[in-house]
Amino acid sequence: MTERPPRRRLSREARQAQLVAVAERLFADRGFEGTSIEDIAREAGVSRTIVYAHYATKDDIFVACVRQARAELEDRVREPEILIEAGADARTVITRAGEVFFGILERDPRRWMVLFNPSTALSPELNAQLTELREQTITRIAGMVRHLGTFDDERSLAFAYAISGVGEQLGRWWLTRPDIPRSTVVAYYRDFITPGLDLR
Rank of each mutant, 00 (worst) to 15 (best):
G103M: 06
V166M: 10
R134E: 14
T95D: 05
H147W: 03
A128I: 08
S119R: 08
R111S: 14
D60F: 07
R134W: 09
P109K: 06
G165W: 00
E72I: 07
L170G: 06
I138C: 00
R107Y: 04
F151M: 10
I61H: 06
S164V: 02
S123E: 11
Y55E: 00
T95Q: 11
T57Q: 02
T131I: 13
T137M: 10
L126K: 07
V114L: 12
Q129M: 12
T57C: 04
G167A: 14
I50D: 03
N127Q: 12
R78L: 00
R155I: 02
A142Q: 14
L115A: 06
G45F: 11
I94S: 05
A90K: 02
Y55Q: 02
N127D: 10
T49L: 01
A97P: 09
A86Y: 01
A158T: 11
S119H: 15
V46H: 10
I50R: 08
D60Q: 08
E106H: 12
E79M: 15
T120I: 05
L148C: 07
F102I: 00
V77S: 05
V46Q: 12
C65V: 15
R76S: 08
E125F: 07
R91P: 04
S123P: 05
R146A: 01
A71C: 09
D152H: 09
E99L: 11
E125T: 14
I84L: 05
E79P: 13
T150W: 09
V77Y: 07
L157A: 13
R76N: 15
I84H: 00
L83P: 01
A56I: 03
H147E: 00
N117C: 11
W112R: 08
E74I: 05
D153M: 01
Y161L: 05
V93L: 00
W112S: 07
G45Y: 10
R140K: 15
